[in-house]
Design a protein around this nucleic acid. Structure first.
Length: 921
RNA sequence: GCAGGAAUGGUGGAAUGGUAGACACGGGGGACUUAAAAUCCCCUGGCCCUUAUCGGCUGUGUGGGUUCGAGUCCCACUUCCUGUACCA
């Protein structure tokens, strides 16, 4: 049998396709197992070798679970809405749907070559109307529900209107944008407009004036997770803060549950920690400070209630509504000037500029515990979006307050014994309190933690404030001023938003003549002709963000062609949740939060049975590029080999890795690469030009992209799959290095060789040594796959092959075990073997073998004999020899005498099966 | 700053507290060949002894500790990666 990977792979891929081998159906007689990959955004660049890493791992696991007898759901689809397609459309005028469809076709052909066991009959695309119908539908459910904190779940908005009509806000605790208090009489006296405005304050999908990240270059708002360090994650454009009327999702209502329910998930600790930070729970107190000569009260949030005696000033965020109400006439001009300055700074400028800035409002607050007057400032170091947008400043124990106090020469009162605050603040929450005595409360002598508790208790008793848990997690901004996304099923009557009828879904994305905003600054949908309801009411012009379509796709895969529901009850109850989810860690604060939120809303509505969508999650590492460099001697066209470059003044230049093999440059191809290198000269080392290398992101501009198609063409999909797994631990980032691939390919060719030499007609019992090899292999492979340790599994196959070759085994039984074990990794060649062994059909229907522990046991046990822990020699004893006897044999060994010369034996330790350690003095 | 993770040969990486460096790449040597490729065999952490064998010493970022025994556990530190940050 010759190893012709092209012929074998195309033949078996066709067989799988023609016979629907990987089609999954509900089968109550079998246990389900749901393996999901994060579906890709089909970019124009196609796949590079890094993309399939996670898909290969999930495919191995799916095939393994199937061989173990599970009914495996392993679907794939496309996250098809997104910014690059739209920007390409703006540049070229091509409809994003056209480029997206083309990119999907390219992705599909690349994926198909790798031999995945996806059930393509369940494919979803987020831009498909049959799919986004349900994205729109869930949005409508969110609009029609509010979060009831007493029931601790989402409830229909009608329930709220009934309660308002009966008893106003009395006894209601609902997640809302703004705390409202009104009576039933008031509610009943309001017209529809007013009532709708009030309800908007409670809806889970709501429209509101909020501070948003506005990106002028992209012409759209962005969610918090789409902005990093003040610039957009996609494109790196500056982002500024603006107040705009936007659709939002009340994710913050779910913060406590998103935090608590994470505990039972099998996710990596680092990923959980990232989510915990993002959710950002902090316990503290909300307190009210009176204002001098005013009946206004300033509400602040603090986690350090104990430092109340050290408050020497107050600070408001520039966007705080308090500012304009507090400012005194003589300070008005200066404050307005400051607010104007701040407004024109972008978020990035605000972050980079760490200089202290701010201005006095002229107002004084009253410390409720001491009665002292303290000045109120405005400064941009206080954020409007967190807590109440106002703080009590304690310069002695907060570094930011300290910097502000020093700049404005405000007093600094130390509150902790021994804290030196002459140079910097003392931020640690430890020590004994001092200077903290007022008429009603004395904290002196208490530890910080005790003082915090004592103060909280005091302010609650006195009604000065309340204990409060704050979350950093903000509501998700859900509008995008873009074309290529899901339209909102919303129209406006007299400026009030109304939902369309469910029967009108999907609301199709309309055609436009250009993908740019309109002349008067409306989103692209403003160009759509007839973008109104039949009655002539205008339809919402924004579209939904990228995460809308990716938030429930795992549910749609369960029942992708259902026209009556997102997912039928039957399909949901059978498939339940994703057992294994594989994808990148970069989605920790975006998709993985939104998806969990989305699922919880559906759970509250009784539409899904699981409160968490992804039980186990594995983050595959990134595969980086390995860039090759040549070194040009300055001002010449002479290139010097890597080992000699330090003798010259050189400029490193990236070269296309296709011209480099094992770091040796193909100089002829290099000369042909670019005209200016045509007459290049080389200074060689031992006759060859050695390139240098660096690990960088894999990208076209670095000339280091490796296309999986090329690897499959040359070595075959099975080699690619094995090699990607052999590269290193799945979760670790590592550079792609084509150099090592020969070893894996050689292994497969040797395996084929072994098969062709074996006498497969003999089905008698395996020889003892062979049996041991195979059962060791079964155990190792089974346990390694469960532990996602695929790199050591591949090594185990190589070792087993070497042992079989050495044993000159021609046992059909051994070959059969090998075939099934390797089927998840190298499915094509396994099919070929399966067929050669005389089976019909597909190896996917085989049974995963179980190992026999007795067959693995050794007859003899080797003990390293060590002196004081240092190994010196080996002894071999029959298995099961008792410890005393092992000790006797070790001591009697001639080698022992040499080590014992002139020493006294203090102690002998025999660990059965492990070691004999002789402690000598 | 904070949080999480990592550090082992020339390289990627193996090692339930028990013979460190599996497996592979790269390198060296040899066989086959007119030659090359392919294939096969041997060697390959460093240092030292020896004609050679046999052997010895040393070695998992640094410094301590626990233990009969530490790459592995504990403490401190250094460096790197990832995430996050005026979050009061």
């Amino acid at each position: 049998m010759e190893y012709n990977h092209k012929e074998i792979e195309s033949r078996w891929q066709k067989y799988w396709r023609d016979n629907d081998i990987y089609k999954a159906e509900i089968n109550p007689a079998k246990k389900k197992f749901y393996v999901l990959d994060m579906f890709p955004y089909p970019s124009g660049a196609g796949l590079h070798v890094g993309h399939p890493l996670g898909y290969i791992a999930s495919d191995i696991y799916s095939r393994f679970k199937r061989l173990q007898g599970f009914n495996v759901l392993h679907p794939m689809g496309y996250d098809a809405y997104g910014l690059p397609a739209e920007q390409y459309a703006i540049q070229t005028g091509q409809h994003p749907e056209k480029t997206t469809t083309e990119n999907i076709a390219r992705y599909r052909s690349q994926l198909d070559k790798i031999g995945f066991s996806f059930d393509w009959s369940r494919e979803v695309r987020t831009c498909d109307p049959d799919y986004y119908k349900w994205t729109q539908w869930v949005f409508m459910q969110m609009f029609n529900h509010y979060y009831d904190r007493i029931a601790d779940k989402a409830l229909p908005i009608e329930r709220l209107t009934e309660r308002f009509a009966a008893s106003g806000t009395e006894g209601i605790d609902a997640a809302c944008s703004k705390d409202l208090v009104f009576t039933a009489d008031e509610w009943n006296s309001w017209d529809e407009r007013r009532r709708r405005e009030v309800l908007m304050n409670y809806r889970i999908a709501y429209q509101g004036e909020t501070m948003v990240n506005w990106c002028p270059a992209l012409g759209t708002v962005l969610a918090n997770d789409e902005v990093s360090e003040g610039v957009s994650v996609r494109g790196g454009h500056p982002v500024e803060q603006r107040v705009m009327n936007q659709w939002c999702l009340r994710v913050s209502a779910y913060a406590p549950r998103l935090l608590a329910d994470m505990e039972e998930l099998e996710w990596s600790e680092s990923l959980k920690e990232t989510q915990r930070n993002w959710i950002g729970r902090s316990e503290g107190a909300e307190m009210r400070f009176g204002v001098k000569d005013s009946d206004l009260e300033l509400e602040i949030f603090t986690t350090r209630a104990d430092t109340i005696f050290g408050v020497t000033f107050m600070v408001l965020a520039p966007e705080s509504a308090y500012v304009r109400r507090l400012v005194t006439p003589e300070h008005k001009e200066a404050v307005e000037k400051y607010l104007d300055e701040v407004k024109h700074k972008t978020e990035r400028e605000r972050q980079i500029d760490k200089r202290v800035s701010g201005v006095f409002t002229g107002a004084y607050a009253i410390n409720p515990l001491t009665g002292k007057e303290i000045p109120v400032y405005v400064s941009d170091y206080v954020l409007a979006g967190y807590g109440t947008g106002a703080i009590m400043a304690v310069p002695a124990h907060d570094s930011r307050d300290y910097a502000f106090a020093r700049h404005f020469s405000l007093p600094v009162i130390p509150l902790i014994e021994g804290a030196d605050v002459s140079e910097e603040s003392f931020d640690a929450k430890e020590g004994v309190m001092i200077n903290s005595e007022g008429p009603e409360l004395n904290l002196n002598g208490l530890q910080v933690k005790e003082a915090i508790a004592r103060t909280k208790q005091f302010i609650e008793e006195k009604g000065l404030g309340k204990v409060k848990v704050n979350y950093r997690l903000r509501d998700a901004i859900f509008s995008r001023q873009r074309y290529w996304g899901e339209p909102f099923p919303v129209y406006y009557k007299d400026g009030i938003p109304y939902l369309m009828d469910e029967k009108e879904l999907p609301l199709l994305l309309p055609e436009v003549d250009s993908y740019l905003p309109t002349a008067d600054g409306q989103p692209p949908l403003g160009r759509a002709k007839g973008w109104t309801t039949p009655e002539g009411y205008p339809i919402e012009l924004c579209t939904m963000p990228g995460f809308a379509g990716s938030s429930a796709y795992y549910l749609r895969y369960m029942d992708p062609h259902n026209h009556d529901a997102l997912v039928s009850r039957e399909a949901d109850e059978y498939w339940q949740d994703v057992d294994l989810y594989i994808g990148g860690a970069e989605h920790a604060t975006g998709h993985l939060i939104y998806s969990r939120f989305w699922n919880k809303v559906l759970f509250d509505l009784g539409l899904v049975v699981r409160k968490e969508p992804f039980r186990k999650l594995v983050n595959q590492g990134m595969i980086q590029g390995r860039t090759s460099f040549v070194y040009r001697i300055k001002d010449t066209n002479t290139f010097v080999s890597h080992g000699l470059k330090d003798n010259y003044d050189v400029t490193p230049i990236r070269v296309d890795i296709s011209m480099v093999s094992n770091d040796i440059l193909d100089t002829a191809r290099f000369r042909a690469w670019r005209p200016d290198f045509a007459d290049a000269e080389f200074i060689l080392e031992d006759g060859r030009y050695h390139c240098g290398y660096a690990v960088e992101k894999m990208s076209k501009s670095m000339y280091n992209v490796v296309n999986p198609d090329d690897i499959v063409e040359r070595y075959g999909a099975d080699t690619l799959r094995l090699y990607e797994m052999f590269l290193g631990p799945l979760e670790q980032s590592k550079p792609w290095d084509t150099n090592g691939i020969d070893g894996v390919n050689r292994f497969l060719r040797k395996l084929v060789g072994l098969f062709s030499k074996a006498d497969l007609s003999r089905h008698d019992e395996m020889p003892k040594e062979v049996k041991k090899t195979m059962h060791k292999l079964i155990k190792k492979v089974t346990m390694d796959i469960e532990a996602f340790s695929f790199n050591t599994t591949v090594a185990a196959f190589m070792i087993a092959l070497n042992e079989l070759t050495a044993a000159k085994s021609d046992s059909a039984a051994a070959m059969e075990i090998f075939t099934v074990l390797i089927a998840p990794f190298a499915p094509h060649i396994a099919e070929e073997f399966w067929h050669t062994l005389g089976h019909d059909g597909t190896v996917a229907d085989a049974r995963w073998p179980e190992w026999d522990e007795a067959a693995i046991k050794d007859d003899t046990v080797k003990y390293p004999v060590s002196f004081n822990g240092k190994s010196r020699f080996l002894i071999e004893v029959p298995a099961g020899t008792d410890a005393k006897e092992v000790e006797r044999i070790a001591m009697a060994d001639p080698a022992a005498a040499k080590w014992l010369e002139g020493k006294t034996v203090r102690k002998v330790i025999v660990v059965p099966g492990k070691i004999v350690n002789i402690v000598v003095g």
